[in-house]
Simulated scan of single mutants.
Amino acid sequence: MGKHAPISYQPRLLGSQEAATYLGVSETTLRALEIPRRIMGGRKLFDRLDLDRYASELPYEGDKANADEVDLCDQHFGLKR
């Protein structure tokens, strides 16, 4: 048996690789985002709740009120419109 028992749910605190996968971005992109990290035993971990909050605050494509924000978001991720 391994060091940890397998779990069937997403842990709340995630390393950078897991957090990037959770958001669907690269680790390089994740590090460029202004998402706070928590410190536990010297490890810097992303809180899944902070990742959810960040994703929920992103503007929707086609929302005219947020068109400038969408353009900035696209530019940040290297996308052209």
Results as ranks from 00 to 15, higher is better:
M1H: 15
M1L: 14
M1P: 13
G2V: 14
K3C: 13
A5I: 14
P6F: 14
P6T: 14
I7C: 09
I7A: 12
I7E: 10
S8E: 15
S8R: 15
S8Y: 15
Y9W: 14
Y9T: 15
Y9S: 13
Q10A: 13
Q10W: 10
P11Q: 13
P11Y: 15
R12H: 12
R12S: 13
L13V: 09
L13F: 13
L13R: 09
L14D: 09
G15P: 08
S16C: 13
S16K: 14
E18N: 13
E18Y: 07
E18L: 13
E18Q: 13
A19W: 02
T21M: 10
T21Y: 12
T21L: 12
T21H: 13
L23I: 08
L23W: 06
L23S: 07
G24P: 04
V25M: 06
S26Y: 04
S26D: 05
S26K: 05
S26H: 09
E27L: 09
E27P: 03
T28L: 12
T29W: 03
T29R: 06
T29G: 03
L30G: 03
L30R: 02
R31K: 12
R31N: 09
R31C: 10
R31I: 08
A32W: 10
E34I: 09
E34N: 13
I35L: 00
I35C: 01
P36K: 08
P36F: 11
P36H: 10
P36E: 10
R37G: 02
R37Y: 01
R38K: 08
I39T: 09
I39E: 02
M40R: 07
M40C: 05
M40E: 07
G41R: 04
G41F: 01
G42P: 03
R43Y: 02
R43W: 11
K44D: 00
K44L: 04
F46L: 08
D47S: 08
R48M: 12
R48E: 09
R48P: 05
L49F: 13
L49I: 11
D50G: 09
D50V: 06
L51K: 03
L51G: 03
L51V: 06
L51F: 04
Y54W: 10
Y54E: 03
A55F: 03
A55S: 01
E57I: 08
L58R: 03
P59T: 06
P59Y: 02
P59I: 01
E61F: 11
G62Q: 05
G62Y: 02
A65P: 01
A65Y: 02
A65E: 14
A65K: 11
N66Q: 10
A67K: 06
E69K: 04
E69P: 00
V70H: 01
V70F: 00
D71M: 01
D71H: 00
D71W: 00
D71L: 09
C73L: 12
D74Q: 12
D74K: 07
F77R: 01
G78I: 08
G78A: 03
G78T: 00
G78V: 03
L79F: 11
K80P: 01
R81P: 04
R81K: 11
R81I: 07
